[in-house]
Amino acid sequence: MPSDQLIFTVTATVLVVIGLGSMAYSRNLIKTVMAFQAIVFGANLALFSSGLGSYSSYMSQTFVLFSILVGASVEAVALAIIVVIHRKYGTLNPWEIRKLKH
């Protein structure tokens, strides 16, 4: 029976890898933001699991709370930027936007 900490860590790693992969693959900026959130949650989970079972577990939990708050505000800003991008370029495909620049 693997320990809770191991399960959490493996899940976190999987989340980060999936997030990075879908960020690389995505052709829509909204999906990119969703993938970014997956990475952030993976990181939060890893931070949370790192404190499990030690005397400083409340420390890691506090920082995870902070991180969730920061993540939410980052997402809000990212979505706002996406709205501006859509107004300006008329597309949300990052490859298309990159082509428009040149």
């Binding site: 790693t13 980060v16 890898v17 960020m23 690389a24 693959y25 995505s26 990119t32 990052p94 490859w95």
Partner: peptide, 19 residues
């Protein structure tokens, strides 16, 4: 490179390498 997909792909590759 400036290409989001390429950068993220490189990052993914390095994360996988570390794992």
């Amino acid at each position: 490179s400036g290409w989001l997909g390429v950068n993220m792909g490189l990052m993914l590759a390095s994360v996988l390498l570390i794992i």
